[in-house]
Design a protein around this nucleic acid. Structure first.
Lengths: 218, 218
DNA sequence: TGTACATCAGTGAACGCGCGTTCACTGATGTAC
DNA sequence: TGTACATCAGTGAACGCGCGTTCACTGATGTAC
C-alpha cells in the first residue's frame, strides 16, 4: 500500500497546509478505494477530491478528467502486475515448472488481493486506443508471460515446439478466465468446490501434458 | 432481435396511444442499446425511459430501480446464452468432438455478437447474491457445459476419468478468458494474430490431448 | 541575509445539467351486470 | 348492447442532489539578485 499524504484534520506530524503535497497519488488511492466500494463506475472526480480532502476543482491540476484518472490507475495496476509476474517468474529459477506455477499463482493473487486494480485494468471500459500508455503497460505485463513461454519452448526438441505466442495466449486466457470468474475479491465471484489456485494448476498441468512438455524434468 | 414496440412519432400502423403496450421489453432493449454505446455504467433509468419514448416516471411501473432493470437484462442474457449453448451442443450429435467445438464457437459468438448482453452478464458489477434469479440463470447455462463434460467422461475407460466438474470449469474459464480478452465486440478488445475461434479450438485440442481423451474417435 | 518576484497548487463560489424519486392525476382497457 | 366501475399504465410537474466545470483568487514555495 502506498503511503497517503496527510489530510485536513489528519495531521500525523504537521498540519495540512494550503498545498496538499501529494495530491496526485492521493487521488489515485481514493479512486482505488472507491472502485473497491462501488465498482469502477462509482468513481467520480468530486468524490475522489472529497476523499483526498481537497476542493472539487483541485483534481483538474493533475488530471484532464475522470477517465484520465482511471487510465492512470489502470496503468499503475499493469505496472504492478508486471512486477508481480516478473518476480514470480524469476527467470525460470529454480526450474521452469516451479516458475510457471508461481506465475500462475501470482496472477490469481493479484486478482484476489488487488481487486480494485484488476477492475480498473480489465473492467473499467477504458478505450485502450485512447490511452496508449495503458495498452503499452498491459503489453509489457504480457511480455513476461511470453518470454517465459519462449524459454520453455526453446528447451523442447525442435520438432515438438509449439508456437510460444499461442501458448502464452492460452495461459493468459485461462488465468484470466479463472481470475475473473472465481478469484476476484468481490460480490461477482462464483463459488466453486476448490481453490482457484488448484483449478489453475490442474489445468496448466493438463495443458502442458497435452503439449508434450516434460515439465517434471524441465 | 426482439421486436420493439412503437414509439411516439414512430407509428408503423397506428399511433402510439396513452399506453405503451410493451414498455417492459422496450426498456430492456433500450438498456442493451445504452450498454453498447456507453457500457453498463451508462445505463440510467431516465435515458432508458427517453429511448422508449415514455416519461421518466414510467419505468417505475415495471422495475424497482436501475439495478433491477440491469438484473433482468443479465437474466435474459443468461437465458439466451443457455439456449445458444444447448443448441450448439445438440446432445453431442453427431459426435462429441464436433459438438464440443460447436459449443466453444457458440460461446465466442455470443461474446462477439451480443456484447451488450455479455457485458450485463459478466461486467455490470451486479451482486449475484441480491439477484438469485440471475445467478440461477447463469447456473443453468453452466449446467449445459457440465452435462456435456459428463457425457464425455462417461465414455472414457473407468480408470481414466477426470472429474467432469473440474473439466467443465476449465473449459468455461478458458472460453471466458478468450471471450473477455479477445472476442468482445467493443473497444476493450485486444488484437491477436489469429481468430479467437482458432485460439480456443487449439487450446481445447491440447487440453483434451492432455486429458487423454480420444476425441478423434469419440 | 533579505527582498522582490514568478510559479504553481489549491480555494470557494458559481453555474447548468441530468438523474432519481414522489405525487396526484388521467387516459385506456377490461369486465360485471 | 350498453353502462358503470375497477384497475392499471403512463403523465407531467416538482423537488433535492451531486456532478462536472469554470473562474478569479490566494497562499505557499523556490529562486534571482
Amino acid at each position: 500500500m502506498v503511503a497517503m499524504s496527510w489530510h485536513r484534520g489528519d495531521p500525523p506530524g504537521g498540519r495540512r497546509g494550503y498545498h496538499h503535497g501529494n495530491l496526485r497519488e492521493a487521488l489515485i488511492e481514493a479512486a482505488l478505494k472507491l472502485i473497491s466500494e462501488k465498482g469502477p463506475s462509482g468513481v467520480t472526480f468530486a468524490e475522489a477530491a472529497r476523499a483526498a480532502g481537497v476542493s472539487a476543482a483541485a483534481p483538474y491540476r493533475h488530471f484532464r478528467d475522470r477517465d484520465a484518472l482511471m487510465a492512470d490507475v489502470a496503468r499503475k495496476g499493469f505496472d504492478r502486475f508486471e512486477t508481480a509476474l516478473r518476480t514470480a517468474w524469476d527467470e525460470g529459477r529454480p526450474d521452469l515448472r516451479a516458475a510457471f506455477e508461481r506465475m500462475g499463482r501470482a496472477y490469481l493473487a493479484f486478482a484476489r488481493d488487488e481487486p480494485a486494480y484488476f477492475s480498473a485494468m480489465f473492467e473499467s471500459g477504458l478505450d485502450l486506443s485512447r490511452y496508449p500508455e495503458v495498452k503499452q503497460a498491459g503489453d509489457r505485463a504480457f511480455e513476461v508471460l511470453r518470454t517465459a513461454c519462449e524459454t520453455l519452448v526453446a528447451m523442447l526438441p525442435p520438432g515438438k515446439r509449439p508456437p510460444a505466442l499461442m501458448m502464452a495466449l492460452h495461459i493468459w486466457s485461462l488465468s484470466h478466465g479463472i481470475a475473473a470468474l472465481f478469484s476476484r475479491g468481490d460480490g461477482a465471484r462464483r463459488a466453486i468446490p476448490m481453490t482457484p489456485e488448484e483449478l489453475l494448476e490442474a489445468a496448466s498441468l493438463i495443458y502442458m501434458q497435452g503439449l508434450g512438455v516434460p515439465l517434471g524434468q524441465a
